[in-house]
């Protein structure tokens, strides 16, 4: 993908992120995710019904990479079963960590396929995934 297009997609998701809103609904599970080495701090809210992710919202303060990555992750995970979501997350992590991955299922998230070149930004792209995994791994 062209560099400028990647930047545009990230910027669009940063300036107008999907589902960035406060949630006061106890059918959502909440998790906080933050980076020790920087100042990103996000709350992620997840609604699961019958093993399917029905909705995800988030709130907080984070950099352009973290915020756009969260927005793109939300677009891709809503509607997926927990199993599908975990598969998607593993693929994304593999891409960021320069391992083998299936680019077909990542959709827009492949804009981060060269984030490994900026070592200090890798954790930004991964931030929402750290949070969402905490919920999915503990979900019975």
């Amino acid at each position: 993908m062209d560099e400028n297009l990647k930047r545009e997609i990230m910027l669009e998701n940063y300036m107008h992120p999907l589902n960035k809103e406060v949630v006061n609904d106890n059918t959502y599970i909440k998790v906080n995710t933050n980076n020790e080495s920087c100042i990103d701090n996000l709350d992620i809210y997840l609604k699961i019904e019958n093993n399917v992710i029905k909705d995800i919202k988030f709130m907080g303060e984070a950099c352009a990479i973290s915020t756009s990555s969260t927005s793109i992750m939300i677009k891709n995970l809503i509607g997926k079963t927990i199993k599908e979501a975990k598969e998607y997350i593993t693929n994304f992590e593999n891409m960021v960590e320069e391992k083998n991955y299936d680019s077909n299922i990542l959709n827009e998230a492949i804009v981060y396929n060269e984030i490994y070149k900026q070592n200090n930004r890798k954790h930004c792209a991964l931030l929402p995934y750290v949070g969402i995994k905490k919920i999915l791994d503990n979900y019975q």
């Binding site: 100042i39 990103d40 303060e61 984070a62 950099c63 930004r121």
Partner: peptide
Amino acid sequence: DGIFSQDVAYYLNKYNFCVRAGS
């Protein structure tokens, strides 16, 4: 205005400016 402080710091870093972002 409208840009997270850390992004501004990252941007300045590209020009070798060392400023701090955060609390």
